[in-house]
């Protein structure tokens, strides 16, 4: 049943979803690109943000205020990973995995069960899939505010210590920067955004689930990488820092549009995560393989034989 109108109808919701997940993508950008830290906390901190938001709303807190606590909860999760890594010396990926796994139990405890729902009928939620246009508008306001704040922050003396740490730790230390603190701050900031994104996603879909963050890091990476490739293609040399953040969010939107498209083409939804993983693998592999093809042993042998 490939009807074009059904595809068009599915577009606005996927854009709204992309914008909300775009906030998470910007969080992933901070760790993956700026801090050079493969942070797997994300899967857990996204669900944590969602669980916290839903439970607080059910307790009677305003949905907007609940997002503040989602953000703080995410920040605490990132802080934990930072401490595991810098104070206890646990390698990047493992530190993130440990926090992520522990968050599964924490999220179960937060909700008391594996999922919890908040209905738009009973609560004045900030975003909801029932009001797509409003959700897109609210999402864009969040994105714009976050991009402005991050653009400012990473231009300050403080923000520059995080960029320097991500780029070259020996240099950072030689210039008097405490690289441990810089990593903890970067991870906290990143996961605060992921937590906020989780809170918004839970409100948007009307429920939180312990498994809602599964594979979030892959979506985040996909968004960052797709955004980077497109940003470079569109703006080239003029792609500045704000542009990169914007394109990380654009990457998330494109990701969801592509997902909607392949679902429309008839890909079973259970194969979605496989598809996402393949997309990320391809985008990561292309630059590497291109470099290899320019300078490969096989080519060297061929050239050598010709002469």
């Amino acid at each position: 049943m490939l009807s074009f109108s059904s595809l068009l109808l599915a577009l606005p919701p996927s854009i709204a979803q992309g914008i909300i997940w775009g906030i998470m993508a910007i969080g992933v950008y901070i760790t993956f690109k700026i801090l050079d830290f493969a942070d797997l906390t994300v899967d857990g901190s996204l669900a944590l943000g969602g669980a916290v938001a839903v439970m607080l709303i059910l307790q009677g807190m305003s949905p907007a205020m609940a997002l503040v606590f989602s953000t703080i909860a995410g920040l605490a999760a990132g802080f934990m990973t930072g401490i595991l890594n810098t104070v206890l010396g646990i390698p990047d990926i493992l530190a993130g995995i440990l926090t992520q796994i522990s968050l599964y139990s924490i999220n179960m405890n937060v909700m008391g069960k594996s999922n919890a729902a908040v209905s738009i009928d009973n609560y004045n939620l900030v975003v909801s899939l029932r009001y797509i246009n409003k959700s897109i508008g609210v999402g864009l306001i969040f994105l714009a505010a976050i991009i402005v704040i991050l653009y400012w922050y990473f231009g300050t003396e403080h923000g520059m210590t995080i960029r320097a740490t991500g780029c070259n730790q020996a240099m950072a230390r030689a210039q008097g920067i405490n690289t441990g603190i810089a990593k903890v701050v970067g991870l906290s900031l990143s996961n605060a955004l992921v937590g906020l994104s989780g809170g918004l996603i839970a409100q948007y879909q009307g429920n939180a689930d312990v498994n809602m963050g599964r594979g979030a890091i892959v979506i985040g990476l996909a968004a960052v990488i797709i955004g980077d490739v497109i940003g470079e293609a569109v703006l080239g040399k003029h792609l500045n820092f704000a542009g990169r953040l914007i394109f990380a969010a654009v990457g998330a939107i494109i990701y969801y549009i592509v997902i909607t498209f392949v679902l429309w083409l008839g890909l079973p939804s259970q194969d979605m995560k496989l598809f996402s993983a393949i997309v990320v693998a391809i985008f990561l592999a292309v630059p590497y393989l291109r470099g290899k093809s320019i300078s490969s042993f096989r080519r060297a042998a061929k050239k050598g034989a010709q002469n």
Binding site: Y153, G155, T156, E157, H158, G159, M160, T161, Q175, G176, I177
Partner: peptide, 12 residues
Amino acid sequence: MRRGQRRSFKWG
């Protein structure tokens, strides 16, 4: 230039 100074939220 900011070696040994407290890094603030002023422009970098």
